[in-house]
Amino acid sequence: MAGREGILGAYVERPAKHYNAAYGTFYDAIFFINSYGKAPMDFKSVLDVQERLEGVQYISSKEISTVVFLAQATKKPILVEGPAGVGKTELAKSVAKCLDREMIRMQCYEGLDESKALYEWEYAKQLLYTQMVKEKIHDVISETATLKEAVDQIADHEDAFFSERFIQTRPLLQAIRSEKPVVLLIDEVDKSDPEFEAFLLELLSDFQVSIPEIGTIKAVTHPFVVLTSNNYRDMSDALKRRCIHLYIDYPAIETEMHIVKMKLPGMDEALLARLVSMVARIRDLDLKKRPCISETLDWARSLMVLQIDELSAESVAQTLNTICKHKSDYEIVKKNILNVIKQG
């Protein structure tokens, strides 16, 4: 290939596997047309949210559906707080299912930085590139007479070193650049460092990210953003200001019965009622870790497998390890077992 075609001739001919933006558009477009016919519309009302969430097996309270509806209508992120295991993450998954969107998940932890969350340079390719440039540079400047011309000639070429072709996208950038709207779940945001939180601010308010070497990348479509927090530490006011706040508590007894009934349709009604009210009483005990909804389900499942249909002190003690995950909790429940299993 001739030097005139640019230093990057080789790269144009040989598409790098990682770099799919040019192709992405094309494939996405096809995919979009295919799925367009059945693609569900956005939520129309609070009731619509509730029904469609129930359609994907997520029982939501009115509060949850209202917040989801508002967040979607006003394109604002939701900050979900609540004890572990009440369905914070599940909410994001269910919304993604309802809206038939892809879900991109970003799990936060101490030490998470933008190279893992946003983008990373593909340095191996960058190093190769520098070697290539060295070989090609003679071709580029061979026809120039003076030094000045040579410099100009080089300056005319694309500055590819820090350009989109060497960027490896991470979850956040992926969510921003996706042609189809996605659901972005930023899980356990309270575990991240303050720097990361600061850097989320731009993303959450303007749906854009700034990469110093390239510039600002704006979102093609607005992702539906859900942030979850266990309140390990307090979030900054700036972050809170950009979100709609939602607190999810342990479900009321009826709601929890509804959930178990939906996930385990074969369960006996009377047994189920007893089971759920017992879990509620166990939650009131002074435990290290209170049983969450999924543990109620586990318990119900193990009762079904063992074909236990009467919850007596023995059968409860026998299956208690499905809901008590600490030895000391186990002991506390056993001590209070008569209180726990009492009727009504």
């Binding site: 917040v67 900050l79 307090d234 809170k240």
Partner: peptide, 13 residues
């Protein structure tokens, strides 16, 4: 009340 609360009280505290 929910709209007011989810906008004005941004944490459980």
């Amino acid at each position: 009340k929910l709209v007011l609360r989810s906008n004005f009280a941004k944490s459980r505290r």
